[in-house]
Design a protein around this nucleic acid. Sequence first.
RNA 1: GUGGGCGUAGCUCAGUCGGUUAGAGCGCCGGAUUGUGGUUCCGGAGGUCGCCGGUUCGAAUCCGGUCGUCCACCCCA
Length: 453
Amino acid sequence: MTALAKLRGFREFGPDEMALRNHVFSRWRAVACGYGFSEYDGPPLEPLALYAEKSGDEIAGQLYEFVDRGDRRVALRPEMTPTLARMLGSRGRAMAKPIRWFSIPQLFRYERNQRGRLREHFQLNADIVGEAAVAADAEVLAVAVDAVRALGLGPADFTARVNDRRLVVAVLGALGVPSAAVGGCLEALDKAERTGPAASRQRLEALGLSSAQAEDLLGLAAAGAGSLDDLKRRFADAPEVLATAAPLEEHACLLEAMGLGAYAEFDFTVVRGLAYYTGIVFELFDRAGELRAICGGGRYDGLLGRLGGDPLPAVGFGMGDVVLGELLRERGLAPDGPPSFDFFVIWLEEAQRPLALEACRRLRKAGGSAVCALRPRSMRKHLAMAARSGARRAVVIGPDEAAAGAATVRDLETGEQERVALESLLPGGVARSPAGLANAGTGPESAHGEGDR
RNA sequence: GUGGGCGUAGCUCAGUCGGUUAGAGCGCCGGAUUGUGGUUCCGGAGGUCGCCGGUUCGAAUCCGGUCGUCCACCCCA
């Protein structure tokens, strides 16, 4: 629109959106911390070269890059892994393994926006570095699943599709696919669901597969195509396939033991676009299949070394806040709105104003939240305003109350009210009331102010 | 980056065949003789019809461009 308009693909967070964002972040943090992960962060602006090599052309083509005033080629970070790799490169050697780190970076990609895809988003990243065992893969997926579950979504709402790139490669080998065509086949598999069988088949044959081979492969990729056991029976005479299926079996077994069996399923078409994954990969989707991926991740054992750090094995995921937020709103799981506050303090005449201001001060000092009327108004107006402001209770200090050294406290939900002495309303009285301070907060965040009085 | 749908008040939209000062509902602000709320009634603010240009006596309306937005591709969170 005008030169002053918000840039496309960027977001503004009014109180409602901010409430949702804070809600999501706080649950993400709680889950990651619950698994013993430590939070870290890095610079949002990085040298372009950090992304030039590694991520491959896919992300490089979407970099939000420019030249700064010092003629440096820089980019807003499109992902967190290179930053993580650098941070570990300089201090990871000295750290006890495995390293469990998480972050909630704001990331930027210069792409055309669409539902669930903007130029800016927040992403929960959790990685385990320095452990090659499948247990680390399973644990990382468990963090991802729990991060979504903690927001109120269950097995009917979302699922994790799991696969292993090594298995796909082995299957292609068993089918006699020439090794030159393997990369192309991975891409075709990744897109099979969207492009449809006819187009996929064409694509595979263009890669040099026979029509029988293409047929076989698409059969494995067909929707709801069967379990890992089916695949093993099918390739019972191919030791490579059986061997590469073992990690996935252990993975499934571990998730089952963690009580998350209902959330994970084998899916031969999940190979992930990014070229750096080396083993087990996974994606989280809404069950209805209406939205884009909520989360994607997997094992990337070669990457840290290639980025110049120690060649440590690593596994991790990224979970965006945009698609997840859409899903939460759709399911009515977003918070109602900005948090409400405890007291709206009303005074009727100028003479009571100092009493009201003093009452507010003491209520806040006691850990409550209070708003004082800014102007004289009619009682009717004051109460209407208090009700719409989001306050839980109104405190009235008019001439009658002032003369009696009292205040009227009205519950704005029930309409019940009582007159209390000014002193007992103030810190002591609030603390005594069971419905008062103990529940004064609105969530985990509100715990901050309460301790330091 | 490629192709397509859509841009009228803060929001949802109406606006006839091109015709004078562009409308409604919700929301917002104020009031209904100053101590009890989200109801009702009255009043008010708020729009260069996304922007620029063209056609026309005359454009919210037709045409072109542009920007924004949404969808598909691409890619991915």
